[in-house]
């Protein structure tokens, strides 16, 4: 019964030139991430980042129902930003997408740049902005961290879904109403974002209780904001 397992943009949805353009964008974006990630990655963060990537792969397999006949799955940007920071986090999501594309035939090979740009770069960047902002405003409690994860997830997922709409506007292979696509994508992804947010909040609050020292966001964003005040 369960044969629909493709989760990411397939080949042929966006035309060749635009797909190639986004491969270039993805490569450039990931290069910046590698460059910046080197500063963050030490002997402790490197294995933690491997675990975060593996965990995102696992949770992406768990499609949850959001409407009758429609499911969603976690993208992982918010979770990754909070646990390992934005640069390493984007690389974690990209690693998952590459493994899914090359080994599990999920997400077209030609479309890999589109998928990486939307989920690893755009979604993670939006989540990062929200997390950095919210952790300065919300209380330093598990509730505050959980609320941060939930809100950042909803925004990150919706913004990532609109990345696809931009790509479709540039190189969609069928003439369709862009407004309709944008509305459908945004509407469904608000619900998916809530699901992602609940998973991300549960995960980061659990890690923060067990090993708060392993939560990047609790180390980086808060000390930095306190440094500004002092």
């Amino acid at each position: 019964m369960d044969t629909t397992v493709a989760m990411h943009i397939a080949n042929g949805i966006i035309n060749g030139p635009v797909s190639l353009l986004f491969i270039a964008i993805a490569v450039a974006g990931l290069a910046v991430c590698v460059w910046r990630a080197k500063t963050d990655l030490d002997d402790r963060l490197a294995p933690m980042a491997g675990l975060v990537a593996a965990f995102i792969f696992a949770v992406q397999m768990l499609n949850f129902q959001v409407l009758p006949g429609v499911s969603g799955h976690l993208l992982g940007g918010t979770l990754a930003v909070i646990l390992v920071g934005p640069w390493v986090g984007a690389l974690c999501v990209a690693t998952v997408l590459l493994v899914q594309c090359l080994v599990f035939a999920d997400g077209g090979l030609t479309a890999i740049g589109l998928n990486v740009t939307n989920m690893a770069l755009i979604g993670t960047a939006a989540a990062y902005l929200l997390v950095a902002l919210l952790l300065r405003v919300l209380p330093r409690t598990p509730g505050g961290l959980g609320a941060t994860a939930l809100i950042a997830s909803i925004v990150g997922v919706v913004v990532a879904s609109q990345g696809f709409v931009v790509e479709y506007a540039l190189g969609g292979t069928t003439e369709l109403s862009l407004g309709g696509i944008a509305a459908t994508m945004a509407g469904v992804h608000v619900l998916i974002g809530i699901g992602e947010g609940l998973i991300a909040a549960t995960t980061v609050v659990t890690v923060a209780k067990v090993r708060p020292d392993l939560v990047y966001a609790l180390r980086a964003f808060r000390t930095r904001s306190m440094g500004v005040k002092a």
């Binding site: 768990l62 499911s71 994508m185």
Partner: peptide, 28 residues
């Protein structure tokens, strides 16, 4: 511990995931 949780989710729980098209597939 984290890897065991991930293995349990991907190895066991995944079989009970929704088979409906995801958000992108639904829109497509």
């Amino acid at each position: 511990g984290g890897l065991l949780v991930a293995l349990l989710l991907a190895g066991v729980v995944s079989s009970f995931a929704s088979g409906s098209p995801d958000g992108l597939d639904y829109a497509a």
